[in-house]
Design a protein around this nucleic acid. Structure first.
Lengths: 351, 351
DNA sequence: TTGAAAGCGATACCAG
DNA sequence: CTGGTATCGCTTTCAA
């Protein structure tokens, strides 16, 4: 009754194809994997049989017979940033599970904001030892050229979290940060009643993702909320101490701040400041990335919302894309789309 | 250099275990799969070898050797509801891809709100033909008993979208609807400035998920926002026409409505009403489930936010859980946690 | 340009 | 209780 209605009882195998097409197993394989050295008439015949029988390649058998591992490498910035830590954790964790699927995950931590280190890491790769790379690094020409060389050597590359311009990579896995900034702005506008002054805490001008968020935030306010004034802090450089210190001055200068948007990675400094001296009335605070400390700030009411991207999803997606590239298998765009998550106190996931 | 650092070069196989433990392949298999009929000393010896060699079972080989498909069935309500349609679509879509992985997906649509139909569907299952079931149905005793019988026959069952109480099922895949309602309330409170009257459009008292949302919504308002008054509409029964008709009267009765929470599945009626006669000032509207029409309402500004759950994720998660149960393989709780998504105009995913 | 045959790493079945 | 062995469906030499 509930037989899988999609294949005529015993699922056809390569043997069936071979028999029906009147060729050998080896030839069927050559056609299925688009290997060279088959006459086009033969190709036709095989394809016809494939279509006729409704053949679907068995992934398990294929993977087993291929008798080799897919070795993937993640190049991440070496920083104490909680979000990056979460990525590292995911790579390590998922690496263990993926062993079952003949995939290995390694990570290489390079100094942050150091294009040369990434270039070296990429150029040092041995094709054959590494079958794919995911890079989270600055969008500089040197990096893009190194990515280019890597791809030229047949190693697929995905840009992780921060895109590399001019589609230097095979794929980008991450969110659109302009959109993320706009999302923060939309939420902020709603929460402060569409009027008043908001402060944007900025990071470093070297981090493209942070710049984009700020740009998106300001753009949306300009477009849709003329009664909201945005002031930007000096560069916080993602340094908690620096940020904590610069805040009192800013509040003095702008006593009417109704909202704060922490666009970069300096949440700790902001939390530090707000948990000691709370301006009154308490401003609406929106920050990025759900991490242990931002989670706590949300719970305690210091933060009102978090804009986030799921580290687990980022890693899984990068792996799937690299694997699909290697297997020449199709990609499910909708599954690979990384969402811009909004978390309030109530919908924050447990754990 | 980047050799997979987790296994000493050639990954050990069952043969290696057998050799080291000094037993046969068959015995290794029995131990690995916890099959009966092995002396405990032998079990010990095998486990020791497994630990020593750092053995990881090769999923591809196992799946191939098992030489059978995993046939899963989704029992869904037959309704024109867009969210359910999205589920159907995902089951169909993912079913095609899963063929590669020796998994088949079928769906059985039963009349909505009809416990007897679900009971029959479950009792009609033939163990051996169906290896797992995902059910989206009402939480009634009859259904729970049928689930019980199904599980007793060795067929794992997951509750999809709507939980069945008393942990009748092996797993629940879906969101906590009380929490979803609270999330909607938190967002609503922020958007309307924490004061004023809000209207909740309710569905049917038979749908536990809808009731829970409303309960959560009201609870949060009571707990945290004393200046917000919640009024509930008569039951809309998810009927667009009915809802569209009852609204004018409600607005007349409560001219000061500042927010509307569409807690059930009657978005179409609400959209219909609001797009013809817009009350002024326009109330904040929050609804559930990102679907083609709610998406459009968000784009056009009729809706301000959507609380949603990802249909693709729901289906994938149900499949993984059923598969893991069948394989006796471990589960990654964090990946199976379905998020309560919040979408504003800006962060709505494309497609 | 094509074919034959040897595995890949687990599971299942039949003996002992 | 334990062991041998034939697969599973596909990929990959090695020959022809």
């Amino acid at each position: 009754m509930y037989r899988h209605g999609l294949t005529p009882d015993p699922k056809p195998t390569v043997n069936d194809i071979a028999r029906v097409a009147g060729v050998s197993l080896a030839t069927v394989d050559r056609v299925l994997n688009a290997r060279p050295g088959v006459r086009s008439v033969t190709i036709e015949r095989v394809n016809k049989a494939v279509a006729e029988l409704g053949f679907v390649r068995d992934a398990a058998a294929a993977s087993l017979a291929r008798r080799r591992f897919l070795n993937l490498l993640f190049i991440l910035p070496k920083t104490s940033n909680e979000f990056v830590k979460a990525l590292e954790h995911q790579v390590a964790e998922q690496g263990i599970k993926l062993l079952h699927d003949r995939v290995t995950l390694d990570q290489h931590l390079v100094p942050p904001f150091d294009p040369a280190a990434i270039v070296k890491a990429l150029d040092d790769l041995q094709a054959g030892l590494v079958d794919g790379v995911a890079v989270f690094g600055p969008d500089t020409d040197a990096v893009k050229e190194a990515v280019h060389r890597t791809r030229a050597r047949g190693i697929p590359v995905v840009a992780l979290v921060a895109d590399l311009s001019d589609s230097a990579c095979d794929f980008f896995v991450g969110i659109n940060n302009v959109t993320a900034g706009r999302t923060a702005a939309e939420l902020m506008a709603g929460f402060i009643g569409r009027r008043g002054r908001v402060l944007v805490i900025t990071g470093s001008r070297l981090a493209r993702d942070h710049l984009e968020r700020r740009k998106g935030f300001e753009a949306l306010m300009t477009e849709c909320h003329p009664d909201i004034q945005v002031v930007a802090s000096p560069e916080g450089r993602d340094d908690p101490d620096l940020i904590c210190k610069m805040l009192p001055e800013l509040f003095e200068q702008y006593p009417d701040i109704r909202g704060i948007y922490s666009s970069a990675a300096g949440n700790l400094g902001l939390i530090e400041h707000l948990s000691t001296s709370t301006p009154c009335p308490k401003p609406i605070v929106i920050a990025h990335e759900l991490t242990p400390s931002s989670r706590e700030a949300l719970t305690s009411g210091i933060f009102d919302a978090i804009i986030s991207q799921d580290a687990g999803h980022l890693v899984r997606s990068a792996v799937r894309l690299l694997k699909a590239t290697s297997d020449q298998s199709p990609i499910d765009q909708t599954q690979e789309q990384i969402r811009i998550d909004i978390y309030l106190k109530e919908n924050m996931p447990s754990l």
